[in-house]
Design a protein around this nucleic acid. Structure first.
Lengths: 131, 131
DNA sequence: ATGACTGCAAAGACTTTGCATCTTT
DNA sequence: AAAGATGCAAAGTCTTTGCAGTCAT
């Protein structure tokens, strides 16, 4: 039986918070941001709602940095820059490559491609300065 | 002071095992494969040596699938297909896109790109059949 | 000898989950 | 009411680490 979701203020707040930033936050960050306004918020609720929001396609995983999932409220596919020093995740202001050749390669290999993920690793401007 | 590494049969075996497969194994898999031949092998040793091998650039992370790191003994940059159903990681038989435009975008954004990671998600042939 | 490597088990980090209670419909 | 949402704390999964003993140089 299909789950019929009910409205939840906390879920709304979690989604809004994620969409309000381009910092590609972690669950922990979302929790810390909302805790002042929702003192009884629990981390479990944040995780549960992130799972729901991902299922609904309102949030995606930007990348996993040091074993921690980083979220993205901007759900159209786009490249990310990840700083290997400080862990910052930055939106790459570039288009993704044409998928055509990849789709056919996938087909050739019996693989059905549904989604693309392009991540560049390196150093962000702050960390470059600090070097 | 620079660490001067000593030879270790287990490290050799771990590297050989990782290089001997295209299945992009997890630490756990490597451990289970080697355990019969090295009955006193411990999982901690596998993790420690994988860390060393990554540091030496002999092994890289292919991707993180369901929170588990998947390794690659083929260290030149190449795309991967990840099956979202069974978690299989498959080498994409395609070239990476030209980095030129991305490098300049990175530069424009103050980011120094050092490495590229391209992953396609979808369904592998086995899981497609099973659908 | 010296210092790296190892097994073992404990600890860590992040995430998930069971249960009783509270909310939304 | 019925069923989803939540807090809390416990449990789970993967990985790292401290320590004492072992091995390579």
């Amino acid at each position: 039986m299909e789950v019929v979701r009910k409205r939840s203020k906390k879920r709304d707040a979690i989604l809004t918070k994620i969409k309000s930033t381009t910092s590609h936050p972690s669950a922990e960050w979302v929790y810390r941001q909302l805790k002042p306004e929702y003192p009884d918020l629990s981390l479990g609720t944040v995780y549960r709602n992130i799972a729901v929001l991902k299922e609904e396609g309102q949030v995606i995983t930007a990348h996993i940095v040091n074993g921690q999932e980083r979220l993205d409220g901007c759900t159209h596919s786009h490249p990310h820059f990840v700083c290997d020093i400080c862990g910052a995740v930055i939106d790459g202001e570039v288009e993704l490559p044409e998928v055509g050749p990849y789709l056919s390669a996938g087909e050739r290999q019996g693989f059905k491609i549904e989604r693309q993920e392009l991540v560049f690793h390196g150093k962000c401007s702050n960390c470059l300065k600090a070097c």
